[in-house]
């Protein structure tokens, strides 16, 4: 499964197709994620963001195409190979996904206990260091229900970086947070990226956040990449889909609803 990445890239996605029955969600998607940079994947609902992310972390298997991550192809990788690949990345889930029955410290320690043979003493020290990195020194013994939503996100981030991954995937990191807390999470993503030289892949539709943190933005629409560029390039895009997405217009190049013809055709097909 050894494969080559494009120089400068840590992930290469080539002609990725994902179908669920007759429905094509990823329609020949090709993109590259640069090593050590923050890449934001943006697009409307149904554009393919979440499906792309699930394919990247191995939760879904592509219908066709290839994903090469840090010199290893995910396509056709067996379970042992996938475990090896999973060590390369951390994932910040949208809802933080902390275990409520476990303390903050035990949540952060979980991947270390699952994937390494390190002693408990060493794991305790690593947990303290990771919590300091996300600004939560001294919170080891708190339970998830005793801390705020923003703090939970930070704990989840400490857990995502517990194994010193090369890549961290963020699924809608600002979702469900107030604007101030969401900005703090953005700042944390920037800090960790700069300090730890981590490659960050952020899936979001929060425009302000995307423009603030991104080195590169990839815009998806209908399962394809429609534009790639810096924050400035995307903000000045001439692409009607990108323009409509940024301005948040209810109707435009991206139709608000199906045409009557499509509706009638759909009725006859059922």
């Amino acid at each position: 499964m050894s494969a080559q990445n494009t120089p400068g890239n840590i992930i290469d996605v080539t002609d990725l197709v994902k179908r669920f029955g007759d429905r094509t969600v990823l329609d020949g998607m090709t993109l590259g994620i640069e090593t050590g940079k923050i890449t934001v994947v943006m697009g409307g609902s149904g554009g393919g963001k979440s499906t792309l992310l699930r394919n990247l972390i191995g939760l879904l298997t592509p219908t066709s195409g290839d994903i090469v991550m840090d010199g290893v192809s995910l396509v056709g990788a067996d379970e042992a190979k996938m475990n090896q690949i999973r060590r390369k990345f951390g994932m910040l889930f949208q809802g933080s996904a902390l275990f409520n029955s476990m303390s903050v410290g035990d949540n952060v320690a979980l991947p270390l206990r699952e994937h390494t043979d390190l002693s408990d003493q060493i794991i305790k020290i690593i947990v303290k260091v990771k919590l300091e990195l996300v600004g939560l020194t001294g919170f080891e013994d708190f339970m998830p229900y005793e801390i705020s939503g923003g703090m939970k996100k930070r704990v989840a981030l400490a857990r995502a970086i517990a194994l010193d991954p090369k890549i961290v995937f963020y699924d809608e990191p600002g979702a469900g947070l107030d604007p101030i807390t969401a900005s703090m999470i953005d700042q944390l993503i920037l800090d960790l990226s700069q300090k730890l030289k981590i490659t960050s892949v952020v899936v979001t539709h929060e425009m302000k956040s995307a423009f603030h943190i991104a080195d590169k933005i990839i815009v998806l629409h209908k399962g394809k990449v429609i534009q790639t560029g810096t924050s400035e390039e995307i903000q000045n895009s001439k692409n009607p889909y990108v323009k409509q997405f940024i301005s948040g217009e209810p109707d435009g190049a991206i139709p608000l609803k199906q045409t009557s013809e499509e509706y009638l055709k759909g009725l006859l097909e059922t």
Binding site: L118, I122, I125, V129
Partner: peptide, 11 residues
């Protein structure tokens, strides 16, 4: 050096 190395020195 990774976090486990750092933690080893702290201990």
């Amino acid at each position: 050096i990774d976090s486990s190395g750092l933690a080893t020195f702290v201990e």
